[in-house]
């Protein structure tokens, strides 16, 4: 069973005692660094990725190591660099396209949805698009409505794309490495509030499969499915629930497409109650898909309707007092869980 100790998720099943700890941002950089060293066809292109090491300083040092040919500062042309990624991927490269804010992925919709996602299928399996698009999600940086959204549901909807949303440094590194090696277009959403989060990451080589959920905390009375930074919200809520005698299991799908439906269903069968938390807008969000999967797969085992909590269905407001209202909190999760288990 994993636990949340001082904000660090620790799973004895995975992590050795005394294992080194690095931040989520360092884990991303390590993954990219290792894959670029391992495979010459990997390169990264984006706004401020080279000289500045990205606006979140996650990529500092990459330019020095691999040079401007493979770490490329681009104009502010999101659609253009996504298109370059698709074309380079079709012709033998493994590009990483860096889109600074998840909100800006709306500018690359055609290149991802109509081009990258469909090229393999439309060509009858002849062409492949092994491309990674890394971007961010998450509110609470007081950045207002165009720099705070969590838009992973838009891409999870599209057949042909894979979508990963790591919560921990360990998951971030393992999923990023797998995404780079995958022969399909993979969109990775990194919560910008997690870059400084620390966690155990082994120094040995490892990858994590896309499509395998992780039990972040085992429990018996209630399943909480949570994505990205909502995993921390779920774990905090689980701690509080434990103190009032409710044992919550926290499941992190880690990728929304492919989705580890078996893990979600099996956990719900075991606990007979399910609550889903995600930072995307609740309406038409991934929470709806998860809830449907659980309702279909575990219907006869459920003691209550599946509940879901997403971000409030409003543009993310600037003023802190309002912004904080829009994001799921541990307190609200606890209240909802108590009602579910009542």
């Amino acid at each position: 069973m994993s636990t949340l100790e001082n904000g660090v998720i620790r799973s004895p099943a995975v992590h050795a005692p005394g294992e080194r700890q690095i931040t989520f941002g360092q884990a991303i950089l390590e993954a990219i660094n290792e894959e670029m060293a391992r495979d010459e066809s990997v390169f990264i292109i984006g706004e401020d990725v080279a000289e500045a090491g990205s606006v979140f300083k996650v990529l500092v040092g990459l330019l020095d190591q691999f040079g401007p040919e493979r770490v490329i500062d681009s104009p502010i042309s999101e659609a253009g660099i996504a298109g370059i990624g698709v074309g380079a991927a079709i012709t033998g490269m493994r590009p990483i396209v860096d889109i600074m804010f998840g909100d800006f992925t709306t500018l690359v919709m055609d290149q991802l949805v109509n081009q990258a996602a469909k090229t393999h299928y439309m060509s009858g399996g002849k062409l492949k698009v092994p491309m990674v698009l890394r971007t961010t999600l998450g509110a609470s940086r007081r950045s207002a409505a165009q720099h705070s959204q969590s838009l992973h549901a838009l891409f999870s909807h599209i057949p042909g794309l894979k979508v990963a949303m790591p919560a921990t440094p360990y998951d971030a590194k393992g999923l990023m490495k797998s995404a780079i090696r995958d022969d399909n277009p993979v969109v990775i959403f990194e919560d910008k509030m997690l870059y400084q989060e620390r966690g155990p990451v082994p120094e040995r080589e490892y990858t994590l499969p896309l499509g395998q959920a992780d039990v972040k905390r085992a429990g018996d009375d209630l399943t909480i499915v949570a994505t990205s930074s909502m995993v921390y919200v779920a774990l905090e809520a689980a701690d509080n629930l434990a103190s009032i005698g409710i044992s919550a299991e926290v499941i992190d799908p880690r990728t929304t497409n492919p989705l580890d439906t078996e893990a979600l269903v099996n956990s719900a069968k075991k606990t007979s109650r399910a609550l889903i938390i995600d930072e995307g807008y609740q309406q038409y969000g991934v929470t709806g898909e998860f809830a449907s999967v659980i309702a279909d797969g575990a219907f006869y085992y459920l003691d209550a309707p599946v509940k879901r909590i997403g971000a409030m269905n409003v543009p993310v407001p600037f003023s802190p007092v309002m912004e904080d209202l829009t994001i799921p909190t541990a307190e609200y999760v606890v209240e909802t869980a108590k009602a579910l288990c009542g």
Partner: peptide
Amino acid sequence: GANGIVGGSAGIATGAGMSVKL
């Protein structure tokens, strides 16, 4: 590939050019 989106392959051709260079 031919493309059903008008102008949709401008980036793809440019990416092929980038790939050639790399």
